[in-house]
Amino acid sequence: MFEARITQGAVLKKLVEALKELVTEGNFDVSSTGLQLQAMDSSHVCLVSLALREDGFEHFRCDRNMAMGIHFQNLSKILKCAGNEDTITLKAEDNADQLTLMFESSNQDRISDFDLKLMSIESEHLGIPDQEYSAEIKMPSSEYQRIVRDLTSIGDTVLISATKEGIKFSTSGDVGTANVTLRHNTTPEKPEEQTIIDLKEPVALTFALRYLNNFAKATPLAPVVKLSLTKDLPIVVEYQIGELGAVKFYLAPKIDD
């Protein structure tokens, strides 16, 4: 059987809210090492990779590897019934066609359980190699959210260029143009307020703002976001979820036809 208990149930709620519009459905692959999800959006230009470690949960047991097909809008409906302070336990029998979610209030005086119907989803796993990127930028996740939101109101695509001067986000549209530059800034005392640019070589790539804006739905999960860029390769937008794991979004760059 599979059983996973997380005291901070709000993390699970935020996670599903971050994913549900980007990916309609996907498999929770559970094994003794944790829970993983790899799913693409309907147009296959972006990919979500989620990895939650077994030791990040208060309790984790998985006797047999399983792929649990989840419809994310449906999972979201159920998780909306959990309180923000609730502990959430996920349970499934081997080869089950449903996932049980149990919510316990913090003072243990309210316990509820919901069964989510599982789907059979054929999914192809892509091998994503570990690689060095030309530029890696860590910045406050709220800053990333603000930049992509602001630029989405001006244009459809953004040119992200990383140089030794900083990282620049540029767009243009009917109303005009916009540029936002962040400089390497380690002055703030708190690491989560710093902007850290690790540049191997200058790089500039164009992306659809609609997707970058969608990735920012993960902002409540982490104070810091990491962007990784290399010429002609997908950007990686990564949120570390405390000690539990990480969610990474990959988006293909725009190419000139």
Partner: peptide
């Protein structure tokens, strides 16, 4: 016009 490649053109199937 600018297009976008599919994820499967960047990462190989396992």
């Amino acid at each position: 016009a600018a297009g976008q490649k599919s994820m499967t053109s960047f990462f190989t199937k396992k």
